[in-house]
């Protein structure tokens, strides 16, 4: 047993070797990040299982897992209650906890404003924006509508009975619908029918149960070009996957531009090192081949953004959404 005990002379040598090792090890890890998750990361989704936000979250989980970018697993948790209120209140209650992150939609801005929640984007830590989802105006192919002029004529001919399908009330789709009505003088002529998810909305247009929708490209694709026809895009430039579809800007309505942001937020007051680790993680993800493939296939705009510019983006979007809601008379100053 004695032989296992280091002799007195060996101690200084061992200490030196050990400290050298530590210095080397620290040097390499510090170059990456000083903080690393030590528990599984709760990946909160502010929508139900199977919806658009859920799909994106699970795709991110796949990319991170396959590339072994995180020493701890990302565990998706759906908190769909109250149009995202449940998820945001949950993050508020996890203040300072770096093992919780949130995938957001635009209800990230509208829900706190409409519901007067004790939480909004300023109470959370912005981490990363990965993409901006785009919107198109769709009709059923059987309607024979070819362009925006046909559309406006058809709506007017229905004398207030035209229906527009969308997801949830006072959320993205209804904001877009309202922008359309204002731009084309169709106020009061379109009835908005809320459904549970974008896929269901598209199905109801394909089956002829509603007259039009403002689906994201990925939601319309299963029925395109057989049953659904895109009329115009709410983007500044044409969507590469729908080259033949004009933008509203080309049609003389430059204000008709709307995006759905896909971002990551953490609870307020998390350690700086943790934020750095997440920023690095999602930066790798956003620039990965898998993410590039997915965004181009689904006609999303890949839009990597972090740090101070992301904070400014959130602030701008917040103002924009409040204005939209005020324009609809849903929010008072």
């Amino acid at each position: 047993m004695k032989s296992l005990k280091p002799s007195k002379r060996a101690i200084p040598f061992l200490t030196l070797a050990l400290s050298l090792l530590i210095v080397v090890a620290l040097g390499t890890t510090q170059a990456l990040a000083a903080w690393k998750p030590t528990r599984p990361i709760e990946f909160v989704i502010m929508a139900g299982k199977g919806g658009g936000a859920d799909r994106i979250a699970r795709l991110m989980q796949k990319i991170v897992t396959q590339n072994k970018w995180s020493p701890q697993p990302l565990v998706p948790i759906n908190k769909k209650g109250g149009s995202g209120a449940e998820a945001m209140l949950y993050l508020l209650s996890k203040k300072g906890n770096p093992h919780v992150i949130l995938v957001t939609l635009n209800s990230f801005f509208t829900t706190p404003a409409l519901r007067k929640l004790p939480v909004n984007y300023t109470k959370l830590t912005p981490v990363y924006r990965l993409a901006m989802d785009t919107f198109l105006l769709w009709v059923n192919t059987k309607s024979g509508i070819k362009n925006m002029d046909d559309f406006v004529k058809a709506v007017k001919a229905k004398k207030g009975k035209w229906t527009m399908g969308g997801t949830g009330k006072m959320q993205e789709d209804q904001l877009v619908t309202n922008m359309l009505m204002q731009a084309y003088g169709l106020k009061g002529m379109i009835t908005y029918v809320p459904f549970r998810g974008g896929g269901t909305v598209a199905k109801n247009l394909a089956g002829g149960h509603v007259d039009s929708t403002v689906n994201n490209p990925s939601e319309g694709l299963p029925h395109y070009p057989g049953k659904m026809k895109p009329i115009a895009a709410l983007t500044p430039e044409r969507i590469p996957a729908f080259k033949e579809v004009p933008t509203f800007k080309e049609l003389g309505q430059p204000q008709l531009v709307y995006f759905m942001q896909r971002s990551i937020n953490a609870p307020g007051g998390i350690p700086k090192d943790a934020l750095a680790w997440y920023t690095d993680l999602f930066n790798k993800l956003c620039n990965s081949k898998e993410w590039k493939d997915y965004t181009s296939k689904k006609a999303l705009n890949r839009a990597c953004l972090s740090g101070a510019p992301l904070g400014k983006f959130f602030a701008d979007e917040d103002v924009k959404h409040k204005k939209l809601l005020m324009g609809m008379g849903l929010l008072k100053n």
Partner: peptide
């Protein structure tokens, strides 16, 4: 109980 399905309010 929960979220109003049509208006989205709790």
């Amino acid at each position: 109980v929960g979220t109003d399905i049509v208006s989205g309010s709790p």
